[in-house]
Each structure stands twice: as C-alpha cells, then as structure tokens.
Amino acid sequence: MVRFENVGLRYGMGPEVLKDINFSIAPRSFQYLTGPSGAGKTTLIRLVLMALKPTRGLVNLFGQDVSRLEAATLTDFRRRMGVVFQDFRLLDHLTVYENVALPLRVTGKEETSYRAEVVELLRWVGLGERMHAVPAVLSGGEKQRAAIARALISRPQLLLADEPTGNVDPGLGRRLLRLFMELQSLGTAVVIATHDIALMELYDAPRLVLADGHLHVDA
C-alpha cells in the first residue's frame, strides 16, 4: 500500500536528507522505522503523509502515484491513514474527547453517531476520566495516548507512529507496543518510527533502517 522508488528529498537548498529510498509496506504488516536521531525518520513519514513532495523519485500510495492527485483523492488517502506525531499535535483549545473525535468530525458525521465509539476508545487507552481535560493539563503519557487514540479512531488501513514511546516510561512504552500489535492483528499496517533499541527487542519485526540518508531493510 506504500511504495517508494528511488525517492530523494532535500529541504530547500540543503543537502539531500534522503537518497535513493526504495521500500514498500504491505497491508496488515508490522515494521519499525529506525535510525539515529536526525536520520530522516520524521521526514520519511511526512513524505508518506503527502506533507512533503519528494525532490525526485516516485511515491506510490494505495496503488496511485501521488505526484498528480486530485484534492478529493488526497483527502481520501489521508482518511485511510492514522498518524501519531512525535510532538502529538493535539489542538490546544479542544478537549481530549474533541481531539480524538476530530477525524470523524471532519467527515461531517453527526456527533451523536460517534460519541459512544469515541468514549469507548478513550476508556480503552485509559483516558476515560480525562476526556474533558484540555491537552495543557495532561501528562506526557496522557497526551501520547490521546494522540494514539486520535490516530486509531477512524480505523485506518495504515498507522504511522513517530517515536510513540519517546515521551513515556518503559512500562507504558511496553503497553503501547502491545496496543499497536493488537491493532495489526485487527488488520492495520503499522509503521513505528523509533530509535529505542530496547523497544524493538521486545517484539521482533522487520526494520527499515535509515543511515546516511540511505535505507535498508533488516528482516
């Protein structure tokens, strides 16, 4: 469902951050995206999200070349993906409930039609009692779980999580990893960007390793 062919990317006139990237992500697969800090993990995720255009090469999503997508298709593709940002990117003026409900709300659904579903998911990630809180009063772990819940609520076909355990203690990190594995077993392709070796040793899965701008796959 994701295929990169000879993709290169540079920011402005800077050096090429990613060079000749080739890989693909199969439906219902589970993989890590790893490499040292600054290797380009976030950049690669932004390419998949179509927030960046590759400076060269081909990005293919859901069987379509993304360089010439209609606005409607682009929106449709984004609705099929869930993303957990490294810095969460929750909307500060909305409650946890509203943040998590956002992907459903933007499709124009009635609030009553998804309320129970959102509440159930919030309970499931342990935020049942915090749903009326605004992000400013949440702990790092709570924000992390709210961001994950927002990525899951629309049952995406592809989940991209950028350092989802970077802000939490190892115990919660393990629980979150279990959550992602469970998600994969329910049919979602999962990509977890992390530089946490200990985390990757907990559960063995293919690793997309970024180093010096190149990517190789450790199966």
């Binding site: 499931w124 342990g126 049942g128 919660l172 629980r175 469970e182």
Partner: peptide, 20 residues
C-alpha cells in the same frame, strides 16, 4: 470500535478506579 478488553491500560486501572 470493539477492542478486546485485555488491552485496557493497567495504569488507568490503578490510578483511577472506573466509575460506571
């Protein structure tokens, strides 16, 4: 979304007893 119950965050269970 019907998620299996066993995935409930233990942390939440410990810190905040669930009210119905």
């Amino acid at each position: 979304m019907s998620m299996p119950d066993h995935l409930d965050m233990e942390e939440a269970e410990e810190e905040r007893p669930r009210s119905g």
